[in-house]
């Protein structure tokens, strides 16, 4: 089944790498994936979005048409790239204030995460993306957790391996906490 995921943030937050990791994880899991990107007019410090399409079959149109899942880590990216999301909205509650229309959207699962704060606790804001991927892996089941983890570890430089492994684990735990809270 075709699933469309949009990751939004600001340049330098690692959004593109996160999208790339998801795509790579799909390949590792034997699925098909495309990743495309959108930049604002400036390359750095402005809003960016990584669009990932996943499918069990070869993908025809590679762009996201209407995201099933959105992960938003920056207000401007949320405002610009997340006008319409179908199923799951994951956002960093320290960085994004949600629109009323999403809060009222029927059937939309909304998960506030604290990826940025966890990354700061780890001492490196640059791993916000990896924390988010951990949370996303638990919250959505889009891809096997092991495939995403493997893709994370293959996509970061060797010297940053441990940091990213830990960031991913913290993301997983964070995600599980959110799921449990929801169930409870």
């Amino acid at each position: 089944m075709r699933q469309e995921i949009r990751l939004g943030g600001f340049g330098g937050q690692g959004i593109m790498l996160a999208g790339f990791i998801l795509g790579r994880a799909a390949i590792l899991a034997g699925k098909h994936a495309t990743m495309t990107q959108s930049y604002g007019p400036e390359i750095r410090g402005a809003r960016v979005a990584a669009d990932v399409v996943l499918d069990d079959h070869p993908i025809d149109y590679p762009k996201v048409i209407r995201p099933d899942i959105a992960v938003m880590l920056f207000q401007e990216a949320y405002d610009y790239y997340c006008r319409d999301v179908a199923r799951v909205l994951v956002y960093d509650e320290d960085l994004v204030r949600l629109d009323k229309k999403h809060l009222e959207q029927e059937g939309l699962q909304i998960y506030p995460i604290r990826a940025h704060r966890i990354a700061e606790e780890l001492g490196k804001r640059v791993v916000t993306n990896i924390v988010s991927l951990g949370a996303l892996a638990v919250l959505t089941n889009v891809l096997p957790v092991e495939a995403i983890e493997e893709a994370v570890l293959r996509s970061v430089p060797p010297k940053a391996l441990e940091l990213n492994r830990e960031a991913f684990q913290r993301g997983l735990e964070h995600g599980r906490t959110l799921v449990e809270a929801r169930v409870a």
């Binding site: 790339f20 795509g23 390949i27 098909h32 994936a33 495309t34 990743m35 495309t36 990107q37 993908i59 590679p62 762009k63």
Partner: peptide, 9 residues
């Protein structure tokens, strides 16, 4: 541009 910048298997 789309084919050049997109990632895929």
């Amino acid at each position: 541009e789309l084919v050049g910048h997109m990632s895929e298997r």
